[in-house]
């Protein structure tokens, strides 16, 4: 069953994408773009892996992953919000910092097996043909990521906190008029975003690949930033975005396994091509749907 394998693979591999897309959605809703998401994911991947090995607890590992992502994002927030440095350049520097630090501290952990997150089939539902394998036979962080998407959507669009977050990104002067600090809100949003990216990295190393290697995210964090646009800054649509990329990965792996005529190296490029093509097709419409101030500035 090609479709079943691809969809199951999309969900399994998409979790490590969904967390950073959600995180970056929160950060960008507040008005800050963080290309350091890639670095936050790497930091999270290594921290979760190491803490998982050292303590024997995958959950402590996941927590450490989130903390590491948050720590790196805090540097980005400080540079951008308190030192006024350029967001794009700083984000790439943050990624460099994450790449270098994890390469150094991960050196001795390469190839060590981790005490990994196991799949927890949902009783009953996982027996359902097709749907069971696609949706209900995954590790706990995968179920949690879907909950996180719904919760993020609710918080962003249905709560006071979410209103402040969106105001910080769209009409900071309104916040000021109410005596609130847009800068503080942005700090929180960027750090929360980084922690989700770190958690996504942690899922990648402790549940998906179950291994650590240098630069193991290979651009997933950058793709996440692209998928935020695809998802039009909407946490629920982020699910589709994350699974689109991981679905493309699953499809090319499946094609490789079935002995496709196309070179495996070119198949590996397919997920990145997919993201660029989808963005190109959808960008203009997404930008129209985006917050008013965004449309206003773009004219």
């Amino acid at each position: 069953m090609l479709i079943e394998s691809v969809l199951a693979g999309a969900v399994r591999g998409g979790t490590s994408m969904l967390y950073p897309v959600l995180g970056e959605t929160i950060a960008e809703r507040s008005g800050v773009i963080n290309l350091g998401t890639e670095g936050c994911m790497l930091a999270g991947a290594l921290a979760a892996y190491v803490v998982g090995i050292e303590t024997g607890s995958v959950w402590l590992g996941a927590l450490a992953g989130a903390a590491a992502g948050a720590a790196l994002a805090l540097v980005h927030a400080f540079m951008v919000l308190s030192r006024g440095s350029n967001q794009i350049a700083t984000g790439l520097v943050i990624t460099f910092l994450g790449l270098g630090t994890t390469a150094l501290f991960g050196q001795s952990y390469v190839g060590q097996g981790v005490n990994a997150f196991a799949a927890v089939p949902v009783p009953g539902l996982s027996e359902v043909p097709f749907i069971g394998r696609v949706l209900f036979d995954h590790d706990p962080l995968t179920y949690l990521s879907l909950v996180a998407a719904v919760v993020t959507w609710f918080v962003v669009f249905r709560t006071r906190t979410g209103m402040k977050l969106r105001a910080a990104g769209e009409r900071p002067e309104v916040l000021e008029a109410f005596g609130l600090s847009p800068v503080r809100i942005r700090y929180v949003a960027v750090v929360v975003g980084g922690s989700l990216a770190g958690l996504g990295g942690g899922q990648l190393s402790t549940a998906f690949t179950r291994n650590w290697s240098e630069n193991m995210t290979v651009g997933r964090g950058f793709v996440a930033v692209a998928l935020v646009i695809f998802a039009a800054w909407n946490p629920l649509k982020a699910i589709g975005g994350a699974y689109l990329f991981s679905g493309a990965i699953a499809l090319q792996l499946e094609l490789q396994a079935r002995g496709s005529e196309i070179s495996k190296y070119l198949l590996q490029a397919m997920p990145y091509v997919t993201v660029i093509v989808v963005l190109a097709v959808m960008s203009r419409r997404q930008l129209q749907r985006s917050p008013e101030s965004l449309a206003r500035v773009l004219g």
Binding site: E28, L81, Q87, P172, P182, V183, S290, L298
Partner: peptide
């Protein structure tokens, strides 16, 4: 930034102002 998410076009306060 203008194409990705140019959210704020008003100065907010000292530190963010210029950026």
């Amino acid at each position: 930034e203008t194409s990705v998410h140019p959210f704020d076009d008003e100065p907010i306060d000292e530190p963010v102002d210029e950026s």
